[in-house]
């Protein structure tokens, strides 16, 4: 039982990171019906920028760890917001009226560019996360949870709640929902669709930056290539939950994390050693296929009216 609980905790931590990144995919898709494949790389940039700032502050200025982390996170958010804005402005907006395939290809192009820029700036080596967080471990019914894990889940939940409030309770959120339904009609109501699209990208990028910092703090390393797999998993989570649906992205992310964790943990025992934990990803994607066969628009995908 304690092992099951532990796997559940592992899965929830992983899942809340996936969910934060998945929100970026789903928000952009909700408004533009575009899959922003550069989003995983924005996450990577968040991690890299935060590490660079922290390194400079800790080594260069001798700042206290807490301050360095806070400033690193803030810097990462600002840089990623600017990055999100620029990507949309340069790579997607000129192609807004072009066939959708063109935008998809520029998205992949942006992703390759960002990866290589990061490689040139920070090199091919793995970068380690400085030991600014004093790890403390708590026992819950035999399972362990660290303060870092609690912080990750709490911050993710907070941000997701804030996003839901923003989309459903504010004028900006209403404008976003209106633009998602019909950009042309929204324009007739005095909404500037271009501005709304920009805001969407900026918010998504900010969430990605936070997720990137979480990933590098949690695993202790960052790498120019880390965005690829993260982006792929988060995109899967968005599709699983119903792409375009905000609550769906959260549900999909958490579900994917838990499935992966339980899958890797129990697949060997369930199949009497016939399948091992190297089938971890197969397991997750098999669930995705099953869901899509029975619910092609994802778990919460049908409520298109609420997408933002």
């Amino acid at each position: 039982m304690d092992i099951f609980l532990q796997q559940l905790i592992n899965g929830l931590v992983l899942g809340s990171i996936y969910a934060l990144i998945a929100l970026g995919y789903t928000m952009v898709y909700g408004i533009l019906e575009l899959i922003n494949f550069a989003h995983g790389e924005v996450t990577m940039m968040g991690a890299m920028v935060c590490l660079a700032i922290m390194q400079a502050l800790l080594v260069g200025a001798g700042a206290p760890p807490g301050v360095a982390l806070a400033l690193g996170l803030a810097g990462a958010i600002v840089v990623c917001m600017a990055l999100g804005f620029t990507i949309e402005r340069v790579a997607y907006r000129p192609l807004r009226r072009a066939p959708r395939l063109a935008a998809l290809i520029t998205a992949i192009g942006v992703s390759i560019v960002l990866q290589n820029v990061a490689m040139l700036v920070w090199g091919k080596r793995y970068i380690s996360f400085p030991p600014v967080i004093e790890l403390a471990r708590y026992d819950i019914a035999g399972a362990h949870i660290t303060n870092l894990q609690i912080a990750i889940v709490a911050l993710a939940v907070l941000l997701m709640a804030a996003l839901l409030l923003l989309v459903h309770r504010t004028r900006l959120g209403r404008a976003m929902r209106a633009t998602a339904q019909s950009p042309d009609l929204a324009a007739l109501m005095g909404i500037n669709p271009n501005a709304i699209v920009s805001v969407t990208f900026v918010i998504g990028a900010a969430l990605a930056a936070v997720a990137g910092v979480m990933v590098s703090a949690y695993y202790g390393i960052a790498h120019y290539y880390m965005g690829f797999l993260l982006g792929l998993k988060a995109f899967t989570a968005a599709v699983l939950g119903g792409i375009g649906n905000i609550a769906g992205a959260v549900l999909g992310g958490l579900l994917l994390g838990v499935i992966e964790s339980l899958g890797a943990g129990y697949i060997g025992d369930l199949t009497f050693g016939f399948l091992g934990s190297h089938y971890q990803d197969v397991f997750a994607f098999f669930v995705l296929i099953l869901v899509l066969v029975f619910r092609p628009s994802g778990l919460l995908g049908e409520r298109v009216g609420e997408r933002a």
Binding site: I3, V13, V215, M226, S261, L262, G276, H278, Q280
Partner: peptide, 21 residues
């Protein structure tokens, strides 16, 4: 226990938990 991962993974919590058991 004989568990597997890949040369691109960063998350081993699931297999480590299974191993811990």
């Amino acid at each position: 226990a004989r568990e597997y991962t890949s040369d691109r993974s960063t998350d081993f919590t699931a297999i480590l938990t299974a191993i811990k058991a």
